[in-house]
């Protein structure tokens, strides 16, 4: 119990519990099975997207192309099934391969040229978006395989099938980052790149690896988003950027690298989803979501700074 209270995500957990109680009291619809299903379904893609950014943050980089790469992967995934009739079992690994490839491009450019990763991914984001819009002319691919749509819509009670993805990915990512030597190296480079290099770890390789992993996760997010929507929309990914940073940062991941919190990121996504759900239930203007998300980030950062205050003074 004490361990839970001391964890940095204890505040988030409390926020979720309080938020849920408030919503349940204010709106009776909140506790309905269907609303829980909608809530959980909206969380699945977001968690994977948050992870996609978190792994680049872990190594001290950032990936501004998360959404653009996800969008491009989504329409290539949908396009190859609709236009070329690629079967689903083959399309999913190809889509994930595309994501890894996009990440590899980011990683190699960031690691080998010495150009700041921020600028690299800003430029590749524009390129990926261009491929997306150029190929689709903003028209979605609608005819998706039935199996994929069933997966996107299926549920057992309040639990959507889509939830399988974060349930599988989260432990694997935790295993990778916290138990495998290669994941530890990644965090070491993020913590102090020079110290890592002097200990015989190649920062370049770690950066490339982190970007590949980020691309992989973005692609998984894209496939899930296509399944969820039932069509490959060119707009997939266009709203991922803020969320991808907000969730890890609110969850306690260090922007400077070297420290990540998987549970924190998941809880942060839940908080954001609760806010969105609450706004929908309260029938508030959707524009408020953007505003409140921005406010939430500022509030969290201020809170963390305030908590760290005595340490800074000492």
């Amino acid at each position: 119990m004490r361990r839970i209270l001391n964890a940095e995500w204890a505040g988030l957990l409390a926020a979720i519990v309080v938020g849920a109680i408030v919503l349940a009291v204010v709106s009776p619809n909140f506790l309905s099975e269907f609303n829980f299903y909608v809530l959980l379904r909206s969380v699945c893609v977001s968690i994977i997207v948050a992870f996609a950014q978190m792994v680049t943050l872990a190594v001290g980089q950032m990936n501004l192309s998360v959404g653009a790469l996800g969008g491009m992967t989504a329409i290539l995934f949908g396009g190859m099934m609709e236009v070329f009739g690629v079967p689903l079992w083959l399309a999913v690994p190809i889509a994930i391969g595309i994501g890894v490839l996009g990440g590899l491009v980011n990683g190699l450019l960031a690691a080998r040229t010495g150009i700041n990763g921020f600028i690299v991914t800003l430029a590749t984001a524009s390129a990926f978006t261009g491929v997306n819009l150029g190929l689709t002319k903003s028209v979605p691919f609608y005819r998706m395989p039935v199996a994929l749509q069933d997966f996107g819509n299926g549920r057992i009670g309040a639990l959507p099938f889509l939830l399988i993805a974060p349930l599988v990915v989260s432990p694997l990512l935790a295993l990778f980052l916290f138990r495998l030597p290669i994941g530890r190296r990644l965090l070491a480079v993020g913590g102090n790149s020079q110290a890592a290099a002097l200990s015989g770890i190649s920062p370049g390789k770690a950066i490339v690896l982190a970007h590949c992993l980020s691309g992989l996760l973005a692609a998984i997010g894209a496939v899930l988003a296509v399944a969820q929507l039932g069509s490959a929309q060119p707009l997939i990914g266009s709203d991922w950027l803020l969320l991808s940073f907000a969730a890890p940062i609110i969850g306690g991941t260090a922007l400077a690298g070297g420290y990540v919190s998987i549970i924190g990121a998941i809880l942060a996504v839940l908080v954001i989803a609760l806010i969105q759900n609450g706004l929908v239930l309260a029938k508030v203007d959707p524009y408020w979501v953007q505003f409140l998300l921005g406010a939430l980030i500022v509030a969290t950062i201020s809170l963390n700074r305030w908590r760290a205050r005595p340490i800074r003074l000492g």
Binding site: F245, D285, L292, G294, A295, V298, I301
Partner: peptide, 26 residues
Amino acid sequence: SGVNSFIVTLASANLFSGAMLILTKA
């Protein structure tokens, strides 16, 4: 706050344009 300008302005970007959309109704 001493917080990285990247994260502060990312948040404020959404704060500002969110407020603008709420007030102008786009």
